[in-house]
């Protein structure tokens, strides 16, 4: 065996597949993160139908449920479920490895370049996971909704935001989404190796712009309901 072959055999013998490696799990995190932030962006755009009134909004909901003879929504759900599961798996396994890598901390460590968003990814992600469960029970299946009507998504949406506690959690979750996206969108370009000095400021600006847009529009819904603009 050549030196090169020996070294490959060595890596294989250590059971070091893509999904077990540090970079591989980071790539899983980034790829599933792209699926998830693609979804939240499309979801935000779709919901702007709320500003066009009950008919448009319910028509859009109906379209989602009937596209591809009803198979479309299940394909979306399967992809999202797989992406969320893999994302959480990668997040948990990398976080545990990272914590084990520094068992004794510093007395006086000073952050220099990291951001509050980058340091709180685990927390913003955890709150997002809780929010996703709540959000599904709230507006998809209705168990967490005071007066849920499966036939009228628009009415569900409007009455949901008349409950102050629900609005509070919704807004907190959106702010967490903002933190998570702002670091995540920039971060995945680095993880996937999509960097070049010419585009570095573009990467930052893209993350900032997309985050402000998604979070801003999402937070506008409860505000529009509370101020009676949507009723």
């Amino acid at each position: 065996m050549s030196v090169a072959e020996q070294s490959i055999a060595g890596a294989e013998a250590r059971g070091h597949g893509f999904m077990a490696s540090s970079v591989g799990r980071k790539v899983v995190m980034a790829a599933t993160g792209i699926v998830l932030f693609g979804f939240v962006t499309v979801h935000m755009i779709g919901n702007t139908q709320a500003y066009l009134g009950a008919e448009s909004f319910n028509g859009y909901a109906k379209f989602l449920h009937t596209m591809l003879h009803g198979a479309g929504i299940w394909i979306f759900r399967a992809v999202l479920l797989a992406a969320t599961g893999l994302h959480i798996w990668a997040a948990v396994s990398l976080t545990l490895a990272n914590q084990a890598a520094r068992p004794v901390g510093y007395r006086a460590q000073q952050p220099v370049a990291s951001t509050w968003a980058s340091r709180t990814m685990r927390w913003s992600g955890f709150i997002l996971a809780a929010f996703i469960v709540y959000h599904l029970l709230h507006l998809t299946t209705g168990q967490a909704h005071p007066n849920f009507d499966p036939a009228n998504p628009y009415a569900n949406f409007v009455s949901a935001f008349k409950v102050p506690a629900a609005v509070g959690f919704y807004i907190v979750a959106q702010l967490c989404l903002g933190l998570h996206m702002w670091h995540g969108v920039w971060s995945f370009t680095q993880t996937l190796g999509l960097t070049h000095p010419r585009y570095d400021s573009l990467r930052r600006n893209f993350a900032t712009g997309l985050t402000l847009l998604v979070v801003g529009v999402n937070i506008s819904y409860p505000i529009a309901v509370l101020t009676g603009f949507i009723h």
């Binding site: 090169a4 070294s7 490959i8 060595g10 890596a11 250590r14 070091h16 077990a20 490696s21 540090s22 970079v23 799990r25 980071k26 990398l94 490895a97 990272n98 084990a100 890598a101 520094r102 952050p111 220099v112 370049a113 990291s114 951001t115 980058s118 340091r119 990814m121 670091h183 920039w186 971060s187 680095q190 993880t191």
Partner: peptide, 26 residues
């Protein structure tokens, strides 16, 4: 081959993984 082997060894040494904080560069 080099990148696979060096990453494998890096992982075997139980270093953590980058979350793009940029502290290293600073």
């Amino acid at each position: 081959i080099r990148v696979r082997d060096m990453v494998a060894q890096m992982d075997a040494e139980e270093f953590g993984t980058c979350t793009n904080h940029s502290e290293c560069e600073a």
